[in-house]
Write a protein that binds this DNA or RNA. Structure first.
Lengths: 216, 216
DNA sequence: ATGAAAATAGTACAATTATACTACTCGGGG
DNA sequence: CCCCGAGTAGTATAATTGTACTATTTTCAT
């Protein structure tokens, strides 16, 4: 029976440490290390690669998506399990395309996590209801053929910067002043973000920022 | 050396179960029970009261604030520790007034949680940096005397209902239609919410909803 | 039964956001 | 060398939100 090395990245220390405990109690897990953000996780991996990396989607410093992209590029042998609070279909699809190996909500049972670890380590993928529903939704939406298919374009650094300021309750004008930009430019960035993430008002922007871990 | 019974309420099963593990490993904790929301926690307490209840501020069904209010009213002997992801000064002050015994961010170290448990169980309160900063801020704001002092009024059920719909990206008009209300009424509720929580635009509303656990 | 809080509805105007375009510059990859 | 995406800036208009009030009815607790 193979045993596995597992690393976990999450910015909430209490959750992370508690998870380290839990993971350590799994029979086929032999070693657990933890990191408080994506950057630290990458450093750990560079030094000594694990079988499985568990990554919180919501993290500051380097968010889950970027972290996974790096891991997949530099260490394709490491299997990735994404943990997320919100079942945000948007990224899940995007990250499946990137090659992530499993998605779990933070309200799953510990034994499902255990199954998922063994599954990704041995069979490359863990297929659960969450993933199934995302795939199904994707199919039906394609059939309906409504929107221009949803650009899975990443939002750029500049756009992210502006999104952060929007979430600090600044108006377009104030953001323009702060960044020494024309209000029109800021407005354009804002519109571009909204198009990329597929929303059409401020509420959608803020929700995205929360769910992507760009704020708090 | 007294030993303590500790209950925890959190809607994220993985976090909760991991915490049960962690709590069980503390020397002076003899019994741990968990509930996935405020209602269940109250039932547990009614049946057999613990020394300390750890409550997540962000929960559906019955949110942290309401849960604490009930516990304090019906079981004043139970000490309460609030766990929160966001260091939202707003509620912390409000909940301190209610009589909650400690506040911890989810990114504190496990041993701080352990200290906090023993402190609230024996000395009624655990004073940390988070609490200190809230108190300091409260003092300075009072001195500055800017806003009409910030009503710590609870938002009502109707207001909460409307806030939820706002967070579903409905406009005032759509909410009015959905609830069979005049747009003006919805607008008024919206304004009242904003005043109560001390924000002045949509972004603030959505952030509050997230931080209070009213959405996702 | 009486006062307070909550819920309802209104008017009017200011400010901001949302939509829909065009257009120029710059740097990097094919 | 040329194209493309990112970043910048603009115009114009519609829609929605934000502010500031008044006012009536309902509901609930003392």
């Amino acid at each position: 029976m193979r045993k596995f090395k597992v690393y976990i990245a999450d910015d909430h220390t209490l959750f992370r440490k508690a998870m380290v405990n839990l993971l350590g109690s799994f029979e086929r897990v032999v070693e657990v290390k933890d990191a408080e953000n994506g950057k630290d996780l990458l450093n750990l991996i560079k030094y000594d690669a694990p079988d499985v990396a568990i990554v919180d989607l919501q993290m500051p410093v380097m968010d889950g998506a970027e972290t996974c992209e790096q891991i997949i590029k530099k260490h394709p042998e490491v299997k990735i399990i994404i943990l997320t609070m919100h079942d945000s279909h948007k990224y899940i699809l995007h990250m499946m395309e990137m090659g992530v190996h499993a998605f779990l909500l933070k309200n799953t049972e510990p034994n499902e996590l255990e199954k998922a670890i063994y599954s990704v380590a041995e069979k490359d993928f863990y297929h659960n209801d969450l993933v199934a529903s995302v795939l199904r939704k994707n199919i039906t939406e394609k059939k309906a053929g409504q929107r221009p298919h949803f650009k899975h374009a990443e939002i750029t650094d500049r756009e992210k910067e502006i999104l952060v300021l929007i979430c600090r309750e600044l108006t377009i004008r104030e953001i323009g002043q702060k960044l020494s930009l024309s209000e029109n430019t800021v407005r354009n960035h804002r519109v571009n973000i909204m198009e990329k993430i597929g929303v059409n008002n401020t509420v959608g922007l803020v929700k995205y920022a929360y769910e992507a871990g760009i704020v708090s």
